[in-house]
Amino acid sequence: MTDTTRPQDPDSRCGFVAIVGRPNVGKSTLMNHILGQKLSITSRKPQTTRHQVLGIKTIGPVQAVYVDTPGMHEEEPRAINRYMNKAATSALKGVDVVVFVLDQLAWTTADELVLEKLSSLKCPVILAINKVDKIEKRETLLPHLDMLSRKRDFAEMIPVSALRQTNLLPLEECVGRFLPQSVHFYPDDQITDRSERFMASEMVREKITRQLGAELPYSVAVEIEEFKHDGKTLHVSAVILVEREGQKKIIIGDKGDRLRSIGQDARIDMERMFDNKVMLRLWVKVKRGWADSERALKSLGMNDF
């Protein structure tokens, strides 16, 4: 891939844009729809996102490097919770713009926590009020915006619907205006910094979360053991890690039905993303206490900041 940006282009802009907020406000959905491609996994379960994921969008002279982050939350009972909070807060270092995402008309102590984390930042903070399509009485939005405007001097406040793709272009244009003049950091056709192996593991984890969100706690991880191309076929082998035997039985399901369903859904997403026929093999392994162990988290690649 070749970076086609001309360093002498006075209109060339580039910078990092952190998307932050408490869990389950739609940060990953927002980034996916801005990019027009699914990079961050999503579900209705809070704290689905565990890692920083870069999504790169280049339109002409403007390259915005979006950083999707885990939801910032108040309690840190386990090592994995501490990891997610660190991943979220570390994304704020050196960014050029922050998009602070809220859920409709809500303002919670968790939102207040995020605002406090932003208090020392000198860069512009854009407030994106998400899921406005779900607000029944639109006349309640203006008083809410007025209340929010007294919380901080936001660069802009933009009501959006990530899922319905409402007002995303004005949000992108606003971000672009605040990016510094710079050559582009990445080739203009690159969309993420993450490896295909990482994307494959996240696709499997998403299907587990979506299918078993009400039955399993957060103690599920996915480790890719094989990822290789053989002609026109991509062979992927993944281990699903759980903490207890009971969780293993839930994921496998009756005669392996649930595991097959997870694999089928993940394979479809992989074939769409990698543009290859995919042979996906899954199995489940008990690894007790991994979510409480800093060492285990690092072995699973959760030390990327």
Score class of each variant (00 low, 15 high):
E215G: 09
Q37N: 15
K122P: 06
V114T: 04
I135Y: 05
M1S: 14
S161R: 02
F154G: 01
G15L: 06
K134L: 11
E112D: 15
L121A: 09
I126V: 08
D230F: 11
V175T: 06
G55N: 00
P180M: 10
E271T: 09
C123Y: 04
G60H: 13
D68I: 00
K277A: 06
S12H: 11
V160M: 05
L169E: 12
R210N: 08
Q190A: 13
T89H: 10
D3G: 12
I268V: 15
R288Y: 12
G55R: 00
C14N: 04
T166D: 04
P77G: 08
S261T: 15
Q181I: 14
W290Q: 02
I56Y: 01
M1R: 15
Q63I: 02
E173I: 12
L105D: 10
A79N: 08
K287V: 08
R44E: 11
E206Y: 04
G26Q: 04
S261F: 12
V99W: 01
V242Y: 00
M84P: 02
L115D: 08
V25P: 00
S237N: 09
K255L: 10
K57E: 07
P70Y: 04
A155P: 04
N24T: 13
M84A: 07
C123M: 11
K255T: 13
A266L: 06
V65E: 01
S28R: 03
A79S: 11
R295C: 11
P10G: 13
T109D: 14
R205C: 01
K298W: 11
N167G: 06
T109F: 12
I19H: 03
T42L: 02
D96W: 07
E215P: 05
A266N: 04
E226M: 14
R78T: 10
E223F: 12
R6N: 12
I262G: 00
E202M: 12
V175M: 06
P159W: 01
M147V: 15
R194H: 11
L216A: 08
I129N: 01
V132G: 03
R44P: 05
D304I: 05
H229A: 13
T4N: 14
R82I: 13
R272K: 13
L127Y: 03
G246M: 12
